[in-house]
């Protein structure tokens, strides 16, 4: 059996959030939501809050140590120079470089992880769930006919209409795409 999915289109984020709330109350599975800008409630309700900041903090801590270690190696072990009679290992002189290196490395590592996790890379073909999903439409994709019985289907339909969906489409799911 071909997989089918229900796509509901909303005109604003409030309708979308209320629809998600009602669907979750009725235990209907939501596959994903697509919004032109981040809507915190959607992320919260669908359990999609990002864990990237935690990674960034850990990466930052590692990078501070790495940057300080690098500076120590340069200024003390490999090429000690006498600057104004100050000792080779002087923390205040290292702080600015450590600070900048930490920001740079943490940004690079974190954005790289972000791209890997979301499957983005330079030159990737644009992938749009529906026309308008990046402009002014708020889109909700529900589970397919396999994990939803007839009763749930009609209930989902009525909830979506009640919450102000401007368009409800049922279409075959393209399995090749992510």
């Amino acid at each position: 059996m071909k997989q089918k999915e229900i796509i509901a289109v909303f005109d604003n984020d409030e309708d979308l959030v209320s629809a998600i709330r009602k669907l979750l109350e009725n235990k209907i599975r939501i596959r994903d939501a697509y919004t032109p800008f981040p809507v915190h409630d959607v992320l919260r309700l669908l359990g999609r809050e990002t864990r990237l900041p935690y990674f960034a903090v850990i990466a930052g801590a590692v990078n501070i140590i790495a940057a300080l270690g690098f500076l120590y190696w340069v200024a003390v072990i490999d090429y000690p120079l006498n600057f104004g009679g100050k000792p080779a290992f002087t923390l205040p002189a290292f702080v600015v470089i450590t600070y900048l290196l930490t920001i740079l490395l943490t940004f690079l590592i974190t954005s790289l992880l972000f791209q890997v996790r979301t499957g983005l890379y330079p030159g990737k073909e644009p992938e749009e769930v529906m026309e308008g999903s990046t402009d002014d439409k708020f889109i909700l994709a529900l589970g397919s006919n396999i994990d939803m019985n007839e009763k749930d289907r009609s209930m989902a339909d009525s909830i979506l209409r009640e919450c102000g969906a401007t368009d409800i489409i049922e279409r075959e799911r393209d399995n090749e795409k992510k």
């Binding site: 104004g84 100050k86 205040p92 002189a93 702080v95 600015v96």
Partner: peptide, 12 residues
């Protein structure tokens, strides 16, 4: 705080 301290510390 740090740039006030750093510049004075560096120039010595």
């Amino acid at each position: 705080w740090f740039i006030q301290f750093l510049i004075i510390w560096y120039a010595n």
